[in-house]
Simulated assay, not measured.
Amino acid sequence: MSIERLRTPEERFSVLPGFPYCPNYVDSLEGYDSMRMAYIDEGERDADTTFLCLHGEPSWSYLYRKMIPVFVEAGHRVIAPDLFGFGRSDKPVREDVYTFNFHRNSLMRLIEHLDLKNITLVCQDWGGLLGLTLPMDMPGRFTRLLVMNTAIAAGDGASEGFYHWRNFSISVPEIPVGGLIANDARSEVNLFDIVAYDAPFPDNRYKAGVRRFPSIVPVDPEMEGVELGLRAREFWSKTWSGESFMAIGMRDLVLGEKVMEMLRGIIKGCPEPLKIEEGGHFVQEYGKEIAEKALCHFKLSLAVTEK
């Protein structure tokens, strides 16, 4: 099936002082009609550990700009893809293209394409909704989890804050991406950051994914992704044997402390979370502290690896 898509002009990304990373592209993912996916690949290709950083809605890999250098400087590889519809990746025009399995499968194909192993899954928002369903079907590839402000949706409802957000997203003529993230992250986001978050979307035609994502979170029993969510909950509670670290942006009204404590109860062996009191939904804006403390917890910091 041919997928009509838009590609954001590269000049839209010409002013990114906080994100000096060259994009990599793949257009050969099986089942994706030669659509181009962008991803950041930093650090040594033969590093023992790979940090796979998955963004959510309506951001892109730029959200990890404060965490990437911490991981790289500690000697690790970082892969940070842009989901289709976001960042530098191609953007399907039709909203019905955006489904749970469409995005989940694209991440699986990318992991296989890059043959990633010893993966530390770093995820938030949709990065977690999708990412937390991956390890159960990719045995042997994932060894650690760094999880922030997300959930495993399995058809049993969501927070009141989520329903407010979903209603907002389907009622406004256009979602103001940069302003939305700036309002959430407050002083951690400057004018250049707002420009960067708006960069993938020259106009509203490019925002099909931004509009669609809130409506496909599997919160009702009949929705696509529910079965995967149920399996994922089973996996994380009974099968997972890796290390975990959790950070919570405490001001998040959608996926905040209550939701995250429920998730912590599912993840076997997940320790007490790092609580970022001033952090909101986009808690990666406080990512330097999170990355440093996660590395320390995992005993993967440069000071440890050099001993």
Rank of each mutant, 00 (worst) to 15 (best):
W165M: 14
L191M: 11
R144C: 06
A74H: 14
E4L: 11
N190W: 03
F84G: 07
T8H: 10
D48F: 03
E257Q: 12
E234P: 00
I266R: 03
P202F: 08
F71K: 03
L121Y: 10
M1V: 05
V70I: 15
C22F: 08
A74C: 14
Y25M: 10
G265F: 11
Y25D: 06
K117P: 00
D41E: 15
I276F: 10
L255M: 14
D82Y: 09
P202A: 09
I68H: 01
P69K: 05
I194Q: 11
D48A: 14
E95P: 03
S244D: 01
D48N: 10
V226L: 08
G179M: 05
V195G: 03
H103G: 07
N167V: 02
G178L: 02
P139W: 08
L230H: 02
E227Q: 09
F213M: 15
M250C: 13
A151F: 10
D156P: 00
P58L: 08
P221E: 07
Y98F: 14
Y25S: 08
E188M: 15
S241M: 07
I68M: 02
A185N: 03
V97S: 04
G18D: 12
E272D: 14
I266S: 04
Q284M: 14
L255I: 03
D184P: 04
F213H: 12
M138T: 01
E224K: 04
P69N: 10
D184S: 14
T133V: 02
G85Q: 08
N190D: 15
V226P: 11
H103A: 11
T49I: 14
L132S: 11
P221M: 06
G140E: 01
P221F: 06
M138R: 01
G179V: 02
V177T: 07
